[in-house]
């Protein structure tokens, strides 16, 4: 076992972490701002990949798919919020959870009916094929591109939430919706937009994953589990938490792959159990007040 191999393994882990952050972001945003545990997250991720496939088929371009599919599915998410989730606000937090859980099944079946049960090819865009020499070894250009997109999305989110008036209102709204309403802010419109953004980012994750993992109706199942692990370790609803947790999980999976590969999936759940024991609210979690 050479230093080079360990360095390469470490890098693979960080790269995997970036993918996991992308996978978890949508779930984390929707929970953090709206307090909704979105169990349809995995299904929406999958629907995003299929929407990407559809747009790429129509336009012949991956880039259009990357732009249009998340917007399409984000708008679809707004419809879900407006007509399915909004009537449930003010009721027990279990209600939206059960609703999204069922919605996930409906979406998977709908995709099976529309696109069939078989996996469908999704090519890596020509401009992003091939490998890059990192000095410690070669790494696929496409995966480096995904890391770049994740960094860009995180930056945009941070600027949007911390540096704009909109972000200020969203943060205030999530802290105390009642006061915001009294101050004359239309909270329901705000939540509609936030839910749409969360779902759109989830769909973007699906499109980005499509050239790496296969596109199939079941591709969201494992994604839901991965996203939960990252969100729970980071602390439900914390963006910096999701970033740190994604990287930690990625590196743990990668290092386990080197020494005990058959444990590579189980390690993330073991890690989650451990974090829950020592820090029940996750690394960056607030105490669960009011939820």
């Amino acid at each position: 076992m050479t230093v080079q191999l360990i360095a390469m393994q470490l890098f693979s882990g960080l790269a995997l972490g970036a993918v996991l952050i992308m996978v978890a972001l949508g779930l984390s945003i929707i929970f953090g701002m709206l307090g909704i545990v979105n169990f349809a997250h995995g299904a929406l991720f999958m629907v995003g990949a299929y929407a990407g496939l559809y747009v790429a088929g129509l336009t012949g371009s991956f880039w259009w798919a990357l732009l249009i599919a998340p917007v399409m599915i984000g708008l679809f998410g707004m419809l879900i919020e407006r007509f399915l989730i909004r009537p449930l606000y003010g009721r027990s937090p279990d209600d939206p959870l059960l609703l999204t859980f069922g919605l996930g099944y409906v979406l998977v079946e709908a995709v099976r009916i529309l696109f069939g049960t078989d996996g469908i090819p999704f090519s890596t865009p020509a401009a992003l094929r091939g490998m890059v020499n990192l000095g410690i070894g070669f790494f696929p250009l496409y995966r480096l591109f995904v890391i770049g997109v994740v960094v860009a999305v995180l930056l945009l989110l941070w600027i949007g939430l911390e540096k704009t008036k909109f972000g200020l209102i969203v943060r205030a709204g999530s802290a105390d919706p009642l006061i915001m309403r009294v101050l004359g802010v239309d909270i329901s419109r705000l939540w509609l937009v936030v839910f749409g953004i969360g779902v759109g980012i989830t769909a973007l994750g699906g499109v980005l994953a499509a050239p790496m993992r296969n596109v199939s109706p079941e591709m969201g199942t494992l994604v839901l589990a991965e996203a939960f692990v990252v969100t729970v370790i980071g602390g439900m609803g914390s963006l910096p938490g999701a970033v740190i947790a994604g990287l930690i999980v990625g590196v743990s999976v990668s290092m386990t792959s080197l020494f005990a590969p058959e444990m590579a999936t189980i390690v993330m759940f073991a890690l989650m159990a451990f974090i829950l024991l020592v820090r029940p609210n996750g690394l960056y979690g607030r105490a669960a007040s009011g939820l």
Binding site: S12, L16, M212, R213, S257, L258, P261, A264
Partner: peptide, 20 residues
């Protein structure tokens, strides 16, 4: 000889060992 979990979604972390 690498055993991978059934139904794994990402194989990237097994590949450095294979290549080396």
């Amino acid at each position: 000889e690498i055993l991978h979990p059934f139904g794994a979604a990402d194989y990237s972390t097994f590949i450095p060992t294979i290549l080396s």
